[in-house]
Amino acid sequence: MASMEEQDFEKPIEDLTRRIEELSGFGAQQGREREIKKLQDRLQRLREEIYAKLTPWQATLVARHPQRPYPADYIETLFTDFIEFHGDRKFADDPAILAGFAMFHETPVAVIGHQKGRDTKEKIRRNFGMPRPEGYRKALRIMKMAEKFGRPVLTFIDTPGAYPGIGAEERGQAEAIAVNLREMSRLKVPIIVTITGEGGSGGALALGVGDHIQILAHSIYAVISPEGCAAILWKSNEKKQEAARALKLTAPDLKKLGIVDEIVPEPPGGAHAHRERMFEILERVLQRNLESLRSRDMADLLAGRHAKFRAMGSVKIL
């Protein structure tokens, strides 16, 4: 079945990895090392091959991979002196969004990102990375503080979407997102947006307005999840692969559509296969883009930010 194959694309990689581990387990024996080296080369090639032609549904699975580095991992690794700030000063603190200030090399910056949580307990605490209004309001509070103190804002996006719940509606989920869109568009400090995993609709966009929008190569960004789209338009959960294809949610598609400015390459096998390598790559890209944005005049930056979003969309004039 094609659909099963599409799900299990990592199986050959796993099988080969296991074989290498088994072989290594026997201890260093004559000839073994050469064999292991050969298999490792093959594993590398296999990863490159498989990851070079991921289908949109496979990209979705990679973007949601449980071992994929999360915004908290990037914050911890790429920054120093991170201090997390809590709460929206209105209702609560939302653990689905991490926000605070930190040093990026020699520059103090504000960092804000979704956080899904690794183990079950943390996932529940962080609501699987689905923020409630207070999360977006906390993010905005930190952004306003960044503006006040002239600190650039770096956001990291990885969310299935804003939480659909009774309390979230009561406290104005829509209003919280809307206000972020408006305020980010006129925030008087540079903003770099990095989509590191799942860019789930309005819940992602509420941290996603900025001067430079970049996406990790196997991340996705969509108006609705493939599952949600399949359920509504095809009235069938089986069609999620088709929906993923139709939605044009992969990094190359997003670049073509003018939604993102840059695709940040991932190591072969994805960010989860070589975390350290991924951290190095993103650090370098962030440094380059931060330098370039900081050298620009703020009025010019705001005009550019505005023009970028003004141009998005595709219409025909008769």
């Binding site: 307005v209 139709a246 998005m312």
Partner: peptide, 12 residues
């Protein structure tokens, strides 16, 4: 949905 993420960006 039929215009994917381009629709989303109209919000911004």
């Amino acid at each position: 949905m039929q215009e994917g993420v381009l629709s989303l960006m109209q919000m911004a």
